[in-house]
Write a protein that binds this DNA or RNA. Structure first.
Lengths: 240, 240
DNA sequence: CGATAGCCTGTGGTCAGACCACAGGGGGAT
DNA sequence: ATCCCCCTGTGGTCTGACCACAGGCTATCG
């Protein structure tokens, strides 16, 4: 509320935010060129660039060189990237304890599963596709975990809540490096992979059967079980 | 995974992230000066500044001019600001539908209330303090809503989950402008304020009494009730 | 007349250099 | 011993200059 000196790049950011809020620009539209915005707002191009950089990392715009309709800064509003960057860096900087990340994932995953299982119609085609892909026997742990991430993300997307889906993606990527590192703590990886496959299929089956309670239990045990095995948590209680 | 041309500012960002991940720098530490980092990494100072700007908006660092121990870029890891900026801009750019934001808030608020009510010990001192502050009769709607935001945030913080607390703060700020605009849709504001006060007290009482189920019901009705009255939702179903 | 090759323009990406305001420390003056 | 001022190094900003790139336009050629 209390505007400090109001740095130049913040001015640019606020200008663009106001344009977005008032509907003057929206997804698919072009932002003015850096040079044009600079002269319009009376700031240097470098300040405009700093604001653009922020918008880009936050997943709000996409920039391209060259000319033509695809060049310049275009509003895209892709929340996943920004959420991932934010959570990843915050975890790295110890702003978010790992335990809280896992706990939050439990909360969201529970909500996702509940929503899908309780809804009248559900589209789990993509999920089943990933389920099959994970049956391949020649997957490296990294490949397997990447598919696992996609599978859980597909559920989040199937829930129809874009905010939760973005948060899930972010939470996942924020602990990705730790999960990768935790693989070594698992003595028998093939056995773990088999167990995860089984749990996934059971979970999806419960969801498809609209069995809310079973779905919730399975997803909770699935996640806590894995993190415990990988030695990534010091004490996750249900909190839900 | 697939690194594209690798822009200069991304290089800087990755360098810093690696230093964070490997523990070479942490909260409270100073980053090298912009000029030093530029020469170290072989990039221009403007590129370093763009990376710093991103880190600043994400709440990872704080920059100050001048000299001395408080000057320069310092790692702070304050997640709230970044989460707010991200969600606020994404909602403004229509990347997040308002309904999804509200639905997500319901999910998180439910988790928060459940966690506090179910925990053995709880610290709701700050919450009670805000409860009393909201009894003042000379509050403008804006003041009242600001306190309301703080109250819900205090609950999130009391739950002990920093990730959820940050997300709640972000969700709140992302819809703040809409909430402010929605006040006009409420015919009898004083009556609404009274109703909100009552609901708040009942909710906190249920939490303090460790009554999980009542707490969940109250918080759900409290939120859906308000948004419906303010005409901000087209159809929020429980999803939980 | 039509197709094609090449120029021309405008975009973001980057760098170098120059200021400025600011805050603090150290050294000189009192 | 105290106080004050300069000096240094910080981020903040602007300017100007390149570069690579992509697309449209145009002149050329078949």
């Amino acid at each position: 509320m209390a505007d400090q000196p109001a740095r130049a790049w913040q001015l640019v950011l606020e200008h663009i935010e106001r344009d977005l809020l008032d509907g003057r620009i929206g997804p698919g539209d072009h932002l003015p060129s850096e040079r044009e915005l600079a002269t319009t707002l009376g700031v240097g191009r470098s300040s405009v660039r700093e604001a653009f950089r922020v918008l880009e990392v936050l997943g709000l715009i996409r920039t391209s060189t060259g000319s033509g309709p695809q060049s310049g800064a275009i509003v895209i509003a892709t929340p996943t990237g920004g959420m991932s960057a934010l959570l990843r860096l915050q975890v790295a900087a110890q702003g978010f304890p790992l335990d809280d990340v896992v706990r939050t994932r439990l909360v969201l995953e529970d909500a996702v599963v509940t929503a899908i299982a309780a809804s009248a119609s559900r589209d789990t085609a993509r999920t089943h596709q990933l389920l099959d892909a994970m049956d391949a026997t020649d997957l490296t742990p990294a490949d397997f975990l990447a598919l696992d991430a996609q599978l859980h993300l597909s559920l989040a997307e199937a829930s129809g809540n874009t905010v939760i889906a973005a948060m899930m993606a972010g939470l996942r990527s924020s602990i990705e490096s730790y999960v990768q590192a935790g693989v070594v703590a698992i003595a028998d990886w093939p056995a773990m992979a088999t167990r995860l496959r089984t749990e996934h299929r059971a979970l999806v089956a419960a969801i498809d059967a609209a069995d809310v309670e079973t779905s919730r239990t399975l997803v909770h045990d699935h996640i806590t079980g894995y993190y415990t095995s990988a030695g990534l948590t010091r004490g996750i209680h249900s909190q839900n």
